[in-house]
Design a protein around this nucleic acid. Structure first.
Length: 486
RNA sequence: GGCGCGUUCGUCUAGUGGCUUAGGACGCUGCCCUCUCAAGGCAGAGACCACGGGUUCGAAUCCCGUACGCGCUACCA
C-alpha cells in the first residue's frame, strides 16, 4: 500500500481543448488521489512555443472543472510548488541541465538541423537498426565548446546516454518492462530557444513537485527509459509509473478528431451530462471486478484502484454513453431536471412562450422515462410547448377513418361539459362517449392522441390532456378536424 | 526497419490453473405489460478466449513462437 501521501498530476499541453482521452487520464489521477487521501495537481506543459493556442489553458480548466475534477494545486489556484506553468520555470530547467553538463551526463550540441537530417538519411540508407544521434558534439574539445558558446552558435543540450545498460520499469499496470539503453537516443533536453523538452521538464517538475505516482497515457511508455535515466543521473528517487491504455476509434486506431468528437466541450454541447461522461470514461479501461456499471463520482473514488486498470485499448462507444446518459438523467430529481430543462429552453429558438416551473414539472413527470437527453423534452414532446403543426402520416393512415371526425366531435362535446377535468374525468368522458357510440376506446384514443400531439408516441393521452388543459385540448381537436382531410 | 505494449461476444468487460456447457452490460431480436412510445420484467441470438506449440492429471488463465493491431522512433507533447 501507499505509505506516503500520494501526489499526482495531470500535465496536459495546452493545444486547444480537453480531449476525452485526457479527461480519462485526469480522472484516473483524480480518483487515485482522492481514494488515497492524496493531492491532485494540474500542471501546464507549455514548452512548445509553436503549439501555443490562445485561450487553451482557460478552456482546459473550464472543461476539467465542468467534469468536477477539482485540483488542489494548479496555475490558477497556486500551491507550495509553483509556478505550475512550465514556461514560467525556465530558470529551473537551465540550472538542472547545467548541473548534468558539469557531471558529464549531458553535453552541448551545436549540430545544425541540416547535419542532423543528413545523418538520419545516411543511417537510413545503411539500414541501421535505429536512427540515433552520433554523439558528434560529445567529443568536441573544451576550446571548441567555449568558442561556440562565446560566439553564440545555436545550441541544444543533449542527454549523454551510456550504451548497453538495462533499464527496468515496474509499471503498476503493465508489470515489469525492460529496455536496453542502446536503444535510447541522446535526447535533446534543452532546445535552441532555451525551452526544455517534455522529457527534462517533466522529470524536473515531478521531482520538485514531489509527485509520487506518474499516471499517464501509454504513448509515454516508450520514452520512460529516458526519464528513468534522468532520475538516476540526478540521483533522485523515482516515482511509481502507471501507463494507461489508449482510447480508440471504432476502427481501433487512436481516438482522433477525424472520426467523431474528441473534445469534452463537444459532448457538453451535445447535451451529455457530466455525470454520464465521467462514469463512461471511468469504465473505459477500469472496473471494480463486479457487475456494477452505474457510478457517481463518490462511488468511483471509493472503488478506484490503478491495479484494476486494463492493459488494452478501449473503443469509445457512443451507444453505451447514451445509455448511461439516460440512466443518470432518470436518477436525477424532478427539480434537478427542471433546472437543466430551463437552461435548455432558454437556449432553444423553438420554444417561444414562458412556462411556469409547475407546468414544466408536470411535463418532466410524464416524460422522464422517455428521454435520454434533456433536449429530448423539447424534441420528443414538442406538443407541450406548441400545438402540432402537422400530423404523423403513418398514424393518420392507421387511425384516422372516415367515421373519426364525427366521433371526435362528440368527444369534444363531452369534454366541454366538464368544468375543470382531472385525468380521471377526461378518461371517464372518453369511456362514456365510446359506449354511446358503441365503439372501442381505442377508436377514440388514437385519433385523440394524434389531434392533440400530432404524434403516435408519448405519455398516456390523458396525462397529455391534463397538462395542456381542457381549453387547449378542445382547441386542438377542432384544429385537427378542420386540418385533417382524407 | 528498430524498440515497446496489447489481443475474451459487434462494443465495454468479468475471469489471476479445476467453481466455466466462458458470466455481466450496451446494442440487436422476440415475448409480457399496455391507448401509443418509453421504462420495467422475461427469453434469445452473439466469443472454437488471435493462431501454433509446449508445461500440467487439468489452461482463457503459466511458458515459447507466429500473426495482427497499436504506440514510440522530433530542438511535439
Amino acid at each position: 500500500m501507499i505509505n506516503k501521501e500520494p501526489r499526482v498530476r495531470f500535465a496536459p499541453s495546452p493545444t486547444g481543448y480537453l480531449h476525452v482521452g485526457g479527461l480519462r487520464t485526469a480522472l484516473y489521477n483524480y480518483l487515485f488521489a482522492k481514494h488515497n487521501n492524496g493531492k491532485f495537481i494540474l500542471r501546464i506543459e507549455d514548452t512548445d512555443r509553436n503549439r501555443y493556442v490562445e485561450g487553451a489553458v482557460e478552456n482546459l480548466i473550464a472543461s476539467l472543472k465542468w467534469c468536477g475534477l477539482e485540483y488542489e494545486e494548479g496555475p490558477d489556484v497556486g500551491g507550495a510548488f509553483g509556478p505550475y506553468m512550465q514556461s514560467q520555470r525556465l530558470d529551473l530547467y537551465k540550472k538542472y541541465s547545467e548541473e548534468l553538463i558539469k557531471n558529464g551526463l549531458a553535453y552541448y550540441c551545436f549540430c545544425t538541423p541540416e547535419r542532423l537530417e543528413a545523418l538520419r538519411e545516411e543511417q537510413q540508407k545503411q539500414k541501421l537498426p535505429q536512427a540515433k544521434y552520433d554523439k558528434h558534439c560529445l567529443h568536441l574539445s573544451k576550446e571548441e565548446i567555449e568558442n561556440n558558446l562565446s560566439k553564440g552558435v545555436s545550441k541544444v543540450i543533449r542527454l549523454n546516454v551510456q550504451s548497453d545498460q538495462k533499464i527496468i520499469i515496474d509499471d503498476i499496470i503493465r508489470g515489469r518492462v525492460e529496455f536496453n539503453s542502446s536503444n535510447v537516443d541522446d535526447q535533446v533536453l534543452i532546445k535552441s530557444d532555451g525551452y526544455p523538452t517534455y522529457h527534462l521538464a517533466n522529470v524536473v517538475d515531478d521531482h520538485l513537485m514531489q509527485i509520487t505516482h506518474v499516471v499517464r497515457g501509454e504513448e509515454w511508455l516508450s520514452s520512460t527509459p529516458k526519464h528513468i535515466l534522468l532520475y538516476e543521473y540526478f540521483g533522485w528517487e523515482k516515482p511509481y509509473f502507471a501507463h494507461l491504455p489508449l482510447l480508440l476509434n471504432p476502427d481501433r486506431s487512436k481516438l482522433s478528431k477525424r472520426q467523431g468528437d474528441v473534445a469534452v466541450e463537444d459532448y457538453r454541447a451535445k447535451g451529455y451530462l457530466k455525470e454520464a461522461l465521467v462514469n463512461f470514461v471511468a469504465l473505459l479501461g477500469w472496473n471494480a471486478g463486479d457487475d456494477k456499471e452505474f457510478y457517481n463520482m463518490n462511488e468511483l473514488i471509493e472503488r478506484f484502484s490503478l491495479e484494476r486498470v486494463n492493459k488494452s485499448g478501449a473503443v469509445f462507444d457512443l451507444e453505451k454513453l447514451s445509455w448511461l446518459n439516460a440512466e443518470h438523467l432518470r436518477k436525477k430529481t424532478d427539480e434537478e431536471i427542471l433546472n437543466l430543462l430551463k437552461v435548455e429552453i432558454n437556449h432553444s429558438s423553438s420554444v417561444i412562450h414562458q412556462y411556469s416551473d409547475d407546468y414544466l414539472l408536470k411535463v418532466i413527470a410524464v416524460m422522464k422515462e422517455r428521454v435520454s437527453f434533456v433536449k429530448e423534452y423539447l424534441t420528443k414532446s414538442p406538443y407541450f410547448f406548441e400545438a402540432p403543426q402537422e400530423y404523423d402520416k403513418a398514424s393518420l393512415e392507421k387511425n384516422w377513418k372516415t367515421e373519426t371526425p364525427p366521433q371526435l366531435e362528440k368527444l369534444n362535446e363531452a369534454f366541454s361539459r366538464i368544468a375543470s377535468p382531472s385525468k380521471e374525468e377526461f378518461e371517464k368522458a372518453l369511456t362514456e362517449t365510446a359506449e354511446e357510440l358503441n365503439i372501442g376506446k381505442g377508436k377514440l384514443i388514437h385519433p385523440l392522441r394524434l389531434a392533440v400531439s400530432g404524434m403516435s408516441a408519448g405519455p398516456g393521452v390523458f396525462d397529455i390532456l391534463v397538462i395542456i388543459g381542457k381549453d387547449e385540448t378542445i382547441k386542438r381537436i377542432n384544429t385537427s378536424l378542420s386540418k385533417i382531410k382524407l
